[in-house]
């Protein structure tokens, strides 16, 4: 657990004033899920991803998505090698431990789904040959919510592949001041110390699975899910997969909070980032507000 605090402290040095989001990002990694960050450019997404890679000593690659990108640009391609007279696979950028997929919504749906499939399966199949991706494997994708000219918005079904969606937002004024005074961020990221290696991370995510959840808590999670399904304000409710993700994220959050059992607060803490991007509101409603209001109206303790 101390290691986790250290991770937070380390990353917090370069991603200033965003403890909550950092914790969520870390939760997502411990829960072995992929992360979607929705933000304007220049808010520190890259810094966050890079910093996370460094402190966990993960192999890190960054891909800037564009509309002329092909699936092969991500996954790799079979190349004929005249020397050996054989096809060999030239691995694409996806063969890494932490992939930052920048502005994923700029790529064509075809390319997007190639990546998303790889994320889901944690393996890549090219020309009939299946190759496992490295362990662990995380994707941190970013999306620009505002400038959407010429973009391909990720459909809801694809969004389900991301365990969480967060947005970093503007820094607080005093933090911004600190930021301005701080100097080159890239330099600082490079100076970050690795706290845990990738094996340690895998071990940690196994510990997440051992965080206990009481029957009463599972009941609460179930009632939350049920509430999204019976609520008219949503087009459709959360899937069982989303429910499993919610529980896993809550377990990871509990672990980061230094507990070996899950509290309703843990569920509530990860709730917006797990639920919001999977739900869409009927006309006129705000998903964020409605999702939040469910926390108010669903009894934590069964009545």
């Amino acid at each position: 657990m101390q290691a986790l605090d250290k991770v937070l402290a380390q990353v917090g040095r370069v991603v200033l004033g965003k403890e909550e989001q950092l914790k969520l990002a870390l939760t997502c990694m411990l829960a072995n899920g992929h992360l979607l960050i929705e933000d304007l450019p220049g808010m520190g997404k890259t810094t966050l991803a890079h910093a996370l890679a460094r402190v966990f000593k993960l192999e890190y690659r960054r891909v800037q998505f564009t509309s002329d990108m092909l699936p092969a640009d991500i996954l790799g391609v079979s190349v004929f090698d005249p020397a050996t007279q054989q096809f060999s696979l030239r691995e694409g950028p996806v063969f890494t431990q932490l992939l930052l997929a920048d502005e994923i919504n700029r790529a064509t749906p075809k390319t997007q789904s190639a990546l998303l499939e790889a994320m889901e399966e944690r393996q890549v199949t090219l020309d009939g040959v299946t190759r496992d991706l490295p362990q662990p494997f995380f994707v941190v994708a970013t999306q620009n919510p505002v400038d959407q000219a010429g973009t391909f918005v990720l459909p809801e079904s694809q969004l389900d592949r991301f365990l969480m969606r967060i947005s970093l937002g503007y820094p607080a004024p005093e933090v911004e001041l600190q930021l301005l005074a701080g100097g080159d961020l890239r330099e600082q990221v490079r100076e970050l110390q690795a706290v845990i290696n990738s094996e340690g991370l895998i071990k940690l995510s196994r510990v997440v699975g051992k965080v206990r959840a009481s029957h009463e808590l599972l009941d609460y999670v179930q009632r939350l899910l049920d509430a999204t399904r019976s609520d008219d304000r949503f087009v459709s409710g959360l899937s069982p997969r989303a429910g499993l993700g919610l529980l896993k994220a809550a377990r990871a959050w509990a672990l980061i909070s230094g507990r070996d059992y899950v509290l309703p607060e843990d569920v509530q803490a990860v709730w917006p980032s797990v639920a919001e991007h999977r739900l869409s509101a009927r006309q006129g409603g705000s998903v964020a507000a409605t999702t939040q209001s469910l926390l108010q109206s669903v009894p934590v303790i069964r009545r």
């Binding site: 919510p145 505002v146 959407q148």
Partner: peptide, 10 residues
């Protein structure tokens, strides 16, 4: 205008 184009509420 942006909202109408589906860019979310800004």
């Amino acid at each position: 205008k942006g909202y109408a184009r589906g860019r979310g509420l800004n």
